[in-house]
Every structure is written in structure tokens, then in C-alpha cells.
Design a binder for these strands. Sequence first.
DNA 1: GGTATAGTCTTGTCTATACAACCGGTGCGT
DNA 2: ACGCACCGGTTGTATAGACAAGACTATACC
Lengths: 245, 245
Amino acid sequence: MQVVIAKFEAIKRALIGEIEAGRWLEHQQIPSENALAARFGCSRMTARRALTELVEQGVLVRSQGLGTFVAPFRSQSSLLTIRNIADEIRERGHRHRAQLLALDACPADMETAIALGLAPQAPIYHSRLLHLDNDQPVQLEERYVNPILVPDYLQQSFQQQTPHEYLSSVAPLLQAHHQIEAIAPTPEQQRLLQLSHAEPCLRICRRTWSSLGAVSFARLLHPGSRFRLGGQLPLGNLSLEKEAP
Amino acid sequence: MQVVIAKFEAIKRALIGEIEAGRWLEHQQIPSENALAARFGCSRMTARRALTELVEQGVLVRSQGLGTFVAPFRSQSSLLTIRNIADEIRERGHRHRAQLLALDACPADMETAIALGLAPQAPIYHSRLLHLDNDQPVQLEERYVNPILVPDYLQQSFQQQTPHEYLSSVAPLLQAHHQIEAIAPTPEQQRLLQLSHAEPCLRICRRTWSSLGAVSFARLLHPGSRFRLGGQLPLGNLSLEKEAP
DNA sequence: GGTATAGTCTTGTCTATACAACCGGTGCGT
DNA sequence: ACGCACCGGTTGTATAGACAAGACTATACC
């Protein structure tokens, strides 16, 4: 039933209501924390909490000394989560298996060196894995690793743990950049992924950082016919979802 | 210099330190709010704020009556933001232009009806736009709109506002689902996007909801050679960035 | 006129306290 | 053996108040 809703929750809905009704426009200043506390008959801390959560949701923006304002709508971007391929496969109830195709040290090419913040030709570790979903190839993972931050990378077998999982455990990742694009596979990639023709592939380039610096640069290639990146994330959600039936 | 850092910020760093150092393991319970307040010599509210922010970052999980625990690492997924194409183009300093190719009402096909939660063959509004970056096609936008929630859709010209911007203004979007895949364009799509050959394309399927229900279903097709989806989002970051130099 | 200064309003941080809601165990009574 | 009430510990919500820090304005001074 959710008979009682928290005061700060009620205030959040009221504020969203003002915006949705058009009474508060983009960039417009809204009443101060003290004014809201008076209007809703609560303490400033409670009004403040409502504001804080709406700021986190991107509905409002605040600035010290100036006031609180309705955020510009155009900043409404949506988010897509990118997950570990092994987890995704297992959650579908399928069997995940990885073939280790290569694991060696090599000099960094230009793009990789830049991505990892190393000098060109600097020695880096490299791995190539093929991930299979019920024995069908779904991802060709080409990964380059900073040997200074992960010295034991070449000793791994990656049968129990994916490289991503291993790296997460030895160098907790703090930040990740992604680029996603559609490309045609090279003949070699086509052969490795067991594609009958040069079908479009989805390529995800991922760079990850730990607190000590750039850890890894990976190119993940997926056959377009066997892989789709799907995700969802609510935007201004938390406020309106557990309504009474 | 950032000479003084807030107390709750210092506590956050200390807690993250415990986790990164391995003293607090996955799923392990951490000291209670009162215990942390005593340890750090602050009030419970301050310790609580540090915990709250770490929970939002996915570092910790809490449950009322039970305690606070280190979040499982495997939930370390990364996020990718999907933005409005016009904003992206303008932020690159390029000129955005949209060609309205079609704007009509039609009966919903099966996939669209399901996506919008309507009956098959129900009347829906449909628009087809070509987005150009400096006069080069970068996105073919096929969009289906729920006519009940957006009755004035067919009266728009979409020259000043993209459909996404218009929909955001009339039915504030609360949630969005995305699917991303790599496909080969149909001959018609190839012609509209002015592609010299059937190059791989990136397709984004986006469903959006407002508080009143499913608003819109869009298929966004991008030539692989002219569009890359790039994003980054920090994970457990906010704690470690504004260190003194 | 231009520059300080003081004052006011805003948000940001922090404290101390109170009570509610929830979980797990303990022990009692049936 | 089973159910029930109770209790201590935990997180969740809310309050009232204090001071700091930033942005702006009005005033006084040179």
C-alpha cells in the first residue's frame, strides 16, 4: 500500500510537479531552502534533502550563494550500462567459455600507446580471447595491459576469470571510457568469429583507469547478428515509481 | 590548493581506502554509523552522509535493520551516455540541420505496438528525419509516437527542435531503454544516408516513458564511418579527484 | 567616479537529538 | 515443538540550530 510516504519524497514530487506543470521554467530560480521549508512546513534540512536528490537526478542545479535553478532539459541524457560479457551470458542461462588465442608481450603501437599514456614502442602485455556463448563466438577480445600496473598479467590462464574480472581484482577500476562503432570485420576477424560473410560488427573500445593510472585498453568485437547491447536506466525516476496500486 | 576538505569527504576516502587495501572484503559488514561516528570523531549524520554517497556510487550497500556492507565488485559496470544528436553536433562546433522526410499517422506494426504497449494496428504517429552534420547525413531517425500522450505531434516541423527535444518538453521523460546493434543498411536506408556502399551501420533503438506511459519508440541509424558513440562515466570516483597538487 | 566595506541572502557543512522501521535473537508461555 | 512478545542494534526520517563560504547590493569613503 505504501500508506505513508516520507516528507522529503512528497516535497520532491511537489517540486517535480511545478516543473512538469510549466510553472517553473528552465533556468528559472526556485524558492530558497528556507522558503521551501516554510512552504512545506518542514525543517530546512528536509527541504534540502529533497533538493539534493533532485540535483543528483539532474532535475535541478544549485550554486552556493546564488540559488537553486531548474536544470536545462537538454541535459536529459540517458545511460547505457556496459557489463562483463561472462556475466551477461551466464545471466541468460547460457554457458560461457573463453579460448585463449594469444598472450604475449609486444611493443605498443601508436593508438595503444596513446590510450595507455605510454611511450610508443614501450613494452606492453597483450591478450586475445574468444568468448563463446554455448560454443558460438560472440566476442573477440583484443586487450592491451599496462605491465607496470599489472606485472603478473602473462601468468594468467583466463579460464575461470575473464581479463576484465582479473584486472578489476588486482587494480580496482575507477573510471572507464567507451567508444562504440559499427565496422566491417577484417578477414582474420571474420575467420576467428566464424562468420560466413563479412557481416557488420559492433566494436566497443574500452579504456580503464585505476587510481594509479591507465590500466588497460580493450577492443571488443561482436558479430552484429549475435550480439546486441541493451540497457536501461531511469532518469528522474526515484520519485514516481512506488505509487500505491 | 583545496586546503580544507570536508569531513564527510575525508571519511569517504578513508572508507574507500579500507576497501582498496583489502581490509574490508566483498559482502563484509562494515562498522555501523554510530561506530564510524565515534571512530572519526563526528556526529552520526556526518558519517551517514559519507555512507550515503558511497552507496549511491555503488561502493556500499545498506539495508535497514541489518547493516552496511561492501558491495560486490562484479556490479562494477560502466555507463555510457546517449545524448541528443543535435547537441552533440553543436558541441563539436558543427552545424546541425534536419530534413523532414515523412510525418504521418499509420497503423502500428507488431514490434512498435509492443514497444509502445498498444494494440497491433492501433493508429500511431510516425516521423522520419535525416540529421545532417555540416550537410553530411549522420542519423536517420525513424520515430513512432503514442498519439494519446502527444496529440500535437503531427503539427510540428522539427526545424528548430528535434523530436526528442519536443517530446521532452511536452512529456517529461522518466525512463529510457536502449538497444544498440550493428546492422547492414537496406538499399533505401543506404540511399537516404547517401552511402556509396552497404557499410555497417550502428542502430540505436530507444523507447522512452513519461509518467503517463510509453511515449515513443525510435530507431536511429548511423553510418559506421561517420558516427561513433562515445562516453565515459566515472565509477567510484568522486572521492579521489580534487587532491591538492 | 571608483573603490572598499559592511550587510544580507543564498547554499554548504556539521552537530546533537529524537523517534520510527526493521532485523535478528532470546526467552517465555502454550 | 511451536508461536509470540520483547529487546538491542541497525538504518531511515526529521528537527532545530549553528557557523562557513560564496554572490550580490547598498553604503560610505576617498
